[in-house]
Design a binder for these strands. Structure first.
Length: 423
RNA sequence: GGAGAGAUGGCAGAGUGGUCGAAUGCGGCGGUCUUGAAAACCGUUGUACCGCGAGGUACCGGGGGUUCGAAUCCCUCUCUCUCCGCCA
C-alpha cells in the first residue's frame, strides 16, 4: 500500500498519476487525509492525558512510600475521571486507525509516469515483436488436439479426478513439463537467483503482504479449516520470505527464484479463452523475484525483462513485448511489461510472463526495509516476473513446431527432455 | 490427537506490581593502544507515532481485564519447543 507520508506530501501529483489507471482517487485520498488529521489530534490529546496519568501514578507511589496514606488515597480517587477519558479516546483512536488502514488498503499502487492511459488490454502498447510467425499448413491443429493425438495431456481425466482446469500430464507431456521447469530454473540460477522450494499454502499475513488480500480474496483457494490459502503464484511465499526484515544496504539486490504449481479459482472466466491450456486452475510456473534498492529498481526491471526474453529466444518462440496500460495494470504494480508468445494454430498471442516493479507498495505491507547510509530504515523496492509460466509455452511449442512427422523439440530443451521429437 | 513447558531488544538471557525501554553477555558502530591487525580497554548501540522545539506517548507474542500504576497478576487467542500417539 501507499504510505501515509506519500498522501500527505504528494496529494496533487498522486491524484494526477492515477489518471492513467482511469481512476479518480480524490475522494479516497481526501477522506484518508481527513481521518489522519483527526487521528493526530486525538493522539495528541490521548498522549497528554496519559502523561498526566503517569505523573500522578508516580506521585501516588511516592506518597505511599513516605507513609502519606491519606493524601495518596485522595489522589487515587481523582484518577477515575482521567481513566475514563483515556478509555474513550483509546476507543476513538482504534476506530480512526482502522478506517485509515482500510482506506489505504483499497488504494492501488501509483502508476509509473511511463504507464499509458487506458481501460483494458486493448490499450496496452506493443513495444517490439521478435521472431518470425510460422506459416501453418492446412491441417494445423490446436494444442488440445495435439495433446490428445500424442497422449501428452488428458484434460478429461483431470475433470474426473478433480474438475475442469486440472489437467493430467502423462508420458512425454509430463517429461516436457519437467524439462521446462529444470531449464527455467537452471537459467535463473545461472543469472544469480537463489533457488527456493517454498510452501504452497500461505497464511493471510502473507497474502496481505504481497497484495493478494484483501484485493483478490475470491481468486485464491482457501482452506477454511486452517485459514490457509493455496498460492496463486510463487511470488507470494518468495516475497514473504522478506516480510519484517531489515536488510543491509550492501546486501541488495537479493535475487530469488522458485518453481511451484499455482492455483487460481479464475472465477468469471469463460469461453474460448479457457480452452485447453489457455487458462487453468492449476498450472506450473517458475518465478523470479528481486528485492532491490529504490535507486536501481527500474534498471533491474529492464534486466528481468531481458532475462525472460532470452528464455523465449532460446525456445525459438516468436514473442512480443507490451507495456501495460493503467487499466490493465495489477493492483500492486507500478509498471508492468507483459511478454506474449504466438500461438500459431490458434492465431493469437498468449501472455506467458508479467514482469513488474512494485516499488514500495509491497515493501510497505511487508515491512521490508534496508538500512540507509544515514542509519535510517527505508522501504525497499520489490520486483517479480514469471520466468516462465508453463501451459501457454507448451501450447505454443506444440502448435508452432508441429510437422507431419511429429512435434519437434527446440534444441535448447533436448538435453532436458532426452528426446527431440514427439510422435 | 494427548500431556507438559515456553514466547523479553540483531542474538543469547535476567527481570514476578512503582524512575524497567528493560540487567548482563555476544554481536554492531566509534575510539585508545598498534606499522597494520588481533587481544585488551573506554564509549556507544531498538522501533513507531505525536510535537516547530523542549519534549511526550506507545511497544517485553496478539487481544481483553484487575490496579492510582502491569514485562510482572487474571482471562483469552496464536505460535514455538519437549514427550507420547499416528504417519510419508
Amino acid at each position: 500500500m501507499l504510505t501515509l507520508h506519500t498522501l500527505r506530501n504528494d496529494r496533487d501529483s498522486l491524484i494526477k498519476a492515477f489518471k492513467s489507471r482511469n481512476l479518480d482517487v480524490t475522494e479516497t485520498v481526501d477522506r484518508i487525509l481527513a481521518i489522519d488529521q483527526d487521528r493526530r489530534q486525538t493522539q495528541k490529546a490521548l498522549d497528554d492525558l496519559k502523561q498526566s496519568q503517569n505523573v500522578a501514578s508516580r506521585e501516588i507511589g511516592e506518597l505511599f512510600k513516605s507513609g502519606q496514606r491519606e493524601v495518596a488515597e485522595e489522589k487515587k480517587a481523582a484518577m477515575g475521571d482521567i481513566k475514563e477519558r483515556i478509555h474513550t479516546l483509546e476507543q476513538a483512536m482504534r476506530t480512526l486507525e482502522e478506517q485509515q488502514l482500510e482506506g489505504l488498503l483499497e488504494l492501488p499502487n501509483r502508476p509509473h509516469p511511463s504507464v499509458p492511459v487506458g481501460t483494458s488490454d486493448k490499450d496496452n502498447v506493443v513495444l517490439s515483436e521478435e521472431g518470425t510467425l510460422p506459416e501453418m499448413g492446412e491441417g494445423a491443429l490446436p494444442h488440445w488436439e495435439l495433446c490428445e493425438r500424442y497422449g501428452l495431456i488428458d484434460f478429461e481425466l483431470g475433470t474426473k479426478i478433480t474438475g475442469a482446469g486440472f489437467p493430467v500430464y502423462r508420458g512425454k507431456g509430463a517429461r516436457l513439463q519437467r524439462a521446462l521447469i529444470a531449464f527455467f530454473l537452471d537459467r535463473a540460477v545461472e543469472a544469480g537467483y537463489e533457488e527456493f522450494i517454498p510452501p504452497l499454502l500461505v497464511n493471510s499475513a502473507s497474502g496481505q503482504g504481497t497484495g493478494q488480500l484483501p484485493d483478490k480474496e475470491g481468486q485464491m483457494y482457501h482452506c477454511a479449516e486452517d485459514d490457509l490459502y493455496l498460492i496463486p503464484t510463487a511470488e507470494v511465499p518468495l516475497t514473504n520470505i522478506h516480510r519484517d526484515v531489515v536488510h543491509k544496504s550492501d546486501d541488495l539486490p537479493i535475487k530469488l527464484c522458485g518453481y511451484t504449481p499455482c492455483f487460481r479459482r479464475e472465477a468469471g472466466s469463460y469461453g474460448k479463452d479457457v480452452r485447453g491450456l489457455n487458462r487453468l486452475h492449476q498450472f506450473d510456473k517458475v518465478e523470479i523475484v528481486q528485492i532491490e534498492h529504490p535507486d536501481r529498481s527500474y534498471a533491474t526491471l529492464d534486466a528481468m525483462v531481458e532475462h525472460v526474453r532470452d528464455l523465449l529466444r532460446a525456445l525459438e518462440l516468436p514473442f512480443r513485448t507490451l507495456r501495460l496500460c493503467g487499466g490493465d495494470l495489477s493492483f500492486a504494480s507500478s509498471l508492468t511489461f507483459d511478454l506474449e508468445v504466438w500461438s500459431a494454430a490458434q492465431g493469437r498471442w498468449l501472455e506467458v510472463s508479467s514482469i513488474s516493479n512494485f516499488e514500495t507498495f509491497q515493501a510497505n505491507r511487508l515491512s521490508c526495509r534496508y538500512r540507509g547510509a544515514d542509519g535510517k530504515n527505508q522501504l525497499v523496492h520489490t520486483l517479480n516476473g514469471s520466468a516462465l509460466a508453463l501451459p501457454r509455452i507448451v501450447a505454443a511449442l506444440l502448435e508452432n513446431n508441429q510437422t507431419s512427422d511429429g512435434i519437434t523439440v527446440p534444441e535448447a530443451l533436448r538435453p532436458y527432455t532426452g528426446f527431440s521429437i514427439i510422435n
